[in-house]
Amino acid sequence: MTARRTFLLAAALAPLAPLGYAASGSDFPQKPIRLIVPFPPGGGVDQIARILGPQLSQALGQSVVIDNQGGAGGAIGAGAVKRANPDGYTLLMGTASTHGSNYVVQKDLPYDPVKDFEPISLLMEAPYVLVANKSVPYDSIAQLNTYANAHAGKVNFGSYGIGSSNHLAAELYKALSGANITHIPYRGAAQAMTALLAGEIDITFDTLPNVVPYLKARTVKALGVGARQRSPLFPDIPTVIESGVPGYVSGTWFGVWAPKGTPPGVIRKLDDAFVQSLHKPAVAKIFEDAGNHVLAAGPAALKARVRAEIEGLQRLVKERGLRFD
């Protein structure tokens, strides 16, 4: 009877052992990790993932494979991660678009950014910069607003597309500044910047990392940065706030998520790996020199950022009566 009871007890506890190990993350990872980038190769999110990939592999002892699944503003890749096994081996490199503006703008989004994912790390953020074509007759925020309101409908701004993150950044600017500027949507950041350089549009809002090369080459005018403080890279560019538009803060941010139900121990181990990678001075310098601000914050910070992003955009859309049909 003793032997039988021992056998039955062991049999009963056997299924619990893997759960315990999984929850603690003590044996994770045991195979390569797939990091899905929901945007095409070569873009800013892809570059961040490929810089961090080797660092994560070193920290975790397993290779990290970058998998680009672009389309629908990041919704396709995010949806793929939602449907993946919650074991920590499939992760999402997302942004303020995948976990903010998409939810507010897209009616049939195939995932819920709050309910369908476990937040891991808030990696970094980057402000938008209001940049203008070199030939426009204004050199500051105040001059832009005066000119736009004196020439109703004549000043236009380009965006990545209707309902895109920088379209909403411009709508926030309109709401807070009262500037009379007209929206012209393009298909992505590259097209909008090409249009700005060609003089097809007067201004646009783009992330600091995207506009660094143009600012250094002096091929565009920088009127203001959408951060609370000036960028150390370009200390001569004033913030939009100090230029007379109180409360204007806009930009993007980057985070990593796992499918809902991924064990807490695995989440902790992954967060530790991302933070450890970003705390390396040489790695942090790469991102900071590109115009990003490294945060290396954990799950709670990422969760709070997502909620704040969604609530702020929902309020903006409602107050401005915006439609994205």
Rank of each mutant, 00 (worst) to 15 (best):
N149I: 00
L313M: 13
P213Y: 14
K221L: 08
A296Y: 06
A142T: 08
G20K: 11
I76M: 02
T2E: 09
L223T: 05
D108M: 04
L295I: 06
G43V: 05
D272L: 04
I267F: 03
Y128F: 15
K269G: 11
W253T: 01
Q276V: 10
A22Y: 10
K82Q: 08
Q47F: 07
G321F: 10
A308P: 04
S121G: 07
Y138W: 15
A179H: 02
L52F: 11
A132D: 03
E242P: 09
L9D: 14
Y128S: 03
Y214Q: 15
S140T: 12
I201K: 11
S135P: 11
N292G: 00
L270S: 03
V114N: 08
S101D: 09
A300F: 03
V317G: 04
Y147S: 02
K318P: 01
G79A: 01
Q30I: 03
Y248D: 09
Y89F: 06
I203H: 03
A175F: 07
G224E: 12
K285W: 00
G53L: 07
T194H: 09
W253H: 01
G244W: 12
H167D: 15
N210F: 01
L13D: 09
A170V: 02
L13V: 13
L92H: 01
R315D: 14
P32D: 03
G291N: 05
T146M: 04
V64L: 10
D289Q: 14
